[in-house]
Simulated assay, not measured.
Amino acid sequence: MKAEKHRKIPWSLLLQIVVTISIFVWLFHKTDWTALTQRFLQIRIPWFLLAMFAYAVNLSASSLRWGVILRAAKKHAPAAWLLRLNWVGAYFNQVLPGSVSGDVLRAWYTRPQTGSTTLALAAVFADRFIGMGALVGIALLGYLFAGHALHLLPGMGETVAILSAGYAVIITLILSPGLGFLEHRIGKLGHKLHDIRAGMGMLLRNPSALLSTLLLSIFVQLCSIFMFWALAHSLGEHPDAVAFWVVWPVVSLFLALPISLAGWGLREGLLVLYMGSLQMGHDQALALSLLAGTTVLLTSLPGAWLWLGIGRHPLAKGEPLPR
């Protein structure tokens, strides 16, 4: 009888589990459970539903941005197909480890439309990257024009500066022809890197497509900010404007890091830290953060239903749609 082989837990997943649990243990140790429960019982439902609607608009608009990016690469996929995949991707980003599982699925199911896995990944990466650029821009402008409350946020100036500089460096690397020398020396990985850079470069050098994606990205992130604003109102909170134009964009950027389970724990820790600096109590800030995560999760749930039978869809198999 052969011994059963046990799969080892990947270190990345183990790290995410440890980070998520550790932050929640620290947060819950300081939590007044009675006060936290009371906060949730007093939620203003219309504001909460408005927040869910805002996130649904966010998902819909981001699928349009994805379509623009594909057209810039001279590829095409029906808008309804991209919308379905975007919702599926949002769902799996919430229920699978890491923060990009759903993005990998989006790329996998658009292989027939792009002609290659690498180009499909490049389009999804560009979609994410442009969206992050809008967040960086909003955070930077918010920081530059913020009022007196800005000085209350610990290390926010340095954080915004590092995020802005990092984003600029990545753009420079994408457009730099100097990386071609490295790509030829690392085999298959180099070819994939070349294809991704070529796809991104095609978008960044296409003024009309770039403008469209930037405008859509700004709209998408404004929907996200509006969601956060509506959630604060649903809890009866009215924080300073810097919370919406600086804190939330910065927190959203950190959630792209695959160091916690779907952002849980990391989001709560950062919001408790920053919102606490803006004179919001621990329990109020934790309630707001948990409500934000719940809103994203609940709004993404239709993606589970949309995923059913997706592998049998003609477009997933590279077949034309029936007329």
Results as ranks from 00 to 15, higher is better:
residue 240 D to Q: 09
residue 189 L to K: 10
residue 30 K to G: 02
residue 180 G to A: 14
residue 97 P to I: 09
residue 309 G to N: 11
residue 192 K to L: 08
residue 5 K to W: 03
residue 73 A to R: 12
residue 231 L to F: 00
residue 257 L to H: 01
residue 32 D to A: 03
residue 145 F to T: 15
residue 178 G to C: 09
residue 274 Y to L: 12
residue 180 G to M: 08
residue 101 S to G: 13
residue 83 L to S: 14
residue 143 Y to E: 12
residue 16 Q to N: 11
residue 62 S to D: 06
residue 76 H to S: 15
residue 295 T to K: 01
residue 291 L to R: 02
residue 139 A to H: 08
residue 71 R to W: 01
residue 4 E to T: 14
residue 93 N to C: 06
residue 8 K to W: 07
residue 156 M to P: 03
residue 52 M to E: 04
residue 288 L to T: 04
residue 302 P to K: 03
residue 21 I to V: 15
residue 281 G to C: 07
residue 59 L to R: 03
residue 213 T to K: 05
residue 89 G to Y: 01
residue 272 V to C: 05
residue 256 A to Y: 05
residue 308 L to Y: 00
residue 244 F to L: 12
residue 205 R to Q: 11
residue 60 S to N: 01
residue 121 L to P: 04
residue 27 L to N: 06
residue 7 R to H: 10
residue 314 P to L: 10
residue 192 K to E: 15
residue 3 A to R: 14
residue 191 H to Q: 15
residue 307 W to A: 15
residue 152 L to E: 15
residue 72 A to I: 05
residue 71 R to E: 07
residue 65 R to F: 00
residue 230 A to W: 00
residue 111 R to V: 15
residue 204 L to R: 06
residue 34 T to D: 11
residue 298 L to G: 07
residue 138 I to F: 04
residue 49 L to K: 05
residue 24 F to K: 06
residue 153 L to A: 08
residue 287 A to L: 01
residue 69 I to K: 04
residue 288 L to I: 02
residue 314 P to D: 12
residue 263 G to C: 05
residue 161 A to N: 02
residue 220 V to I: 13
residue 214 L to S: 15
residue 132 M to D: 07
residue 25 V to S: 13
residue 34 T to N: 07
residue 278 L to R: 04
residue 306 L to S: 11
residue 255 L to E: 07
residue 68 V to P: 08
residue 93 N to P: 09
residue 79 A to V: 13
residue 248 W to D: 10
residue 72 A to G: 03
residue 165 A to C: 08
residue 284 Q to G: 00
residue 191 H to W: 09
residue 193 L to C: 11
residue 315 L to V: 08
residue 321 L to P: 03
residue 301 L to G: 04
residue 223 C to R: 00
residue 31 T to H: 00
residue 114 T to F: 00
residue 256 A to T: 14
residue 127 D to N: 15
residue 120 A to Q: 11
residue 239 P to K: 06
residue 245 W to I: 14
residue 212 S to F: 04
residue 142 G to I: 12
residue 309 G to Y: 05
residue 64 L to R: 02
residue 9 I to Q: 11
residue 198 A to E: 14
residue 10 P to E: 09
residue 208 S to K: 13
residue 301 L to A: 11
residue 259 I to P: 05
residue 165 A to V: 13
residue 201 G to T: 12
residue 69 I to N: 04
residue 53 F to D: 00
residue 254 F to L: 12
residue 234 S to T: 02
residue 276 G to P: 02
residue 297 L to T: 07
residue 87 W to M: 15
residue 48 F to S: 03
residue 122 A to T: 06
residue 98 G to S: 13
residue 9 I to V: 15
residue 21 I to T: 12
residue 122 A to I: 06
residue 198 A to R: 14
residue 25 V to D: 09
residue 155 G to V: 01
residue 198 A to S: 14
residue 174 I to R: 11
residue 13 L to G: 04
residue 36 L to D: 02
residue 201 G to K: 06
residue 20 T to Y: 04
residue 74 K to N: 14
residue 190 G to K: 13
residue 178 G to E: 13
residue 290 L to E: 05
residue 172 T to Q: 11
residue 61 A to E: 10
residue 77 A to L: 08
residue 127 D to C: 09
residue 157 G to W: 01
residue 238 H to I: 04
residue 34 T to A: 07
residue 79 A to T: 08
residue 135 L to M: 14
residue 103 D to A: 08
residue 227 M to Q: 03
residue 64 L to E: 06
residue 278 L to Y: 06
residue 316 A to N: 02
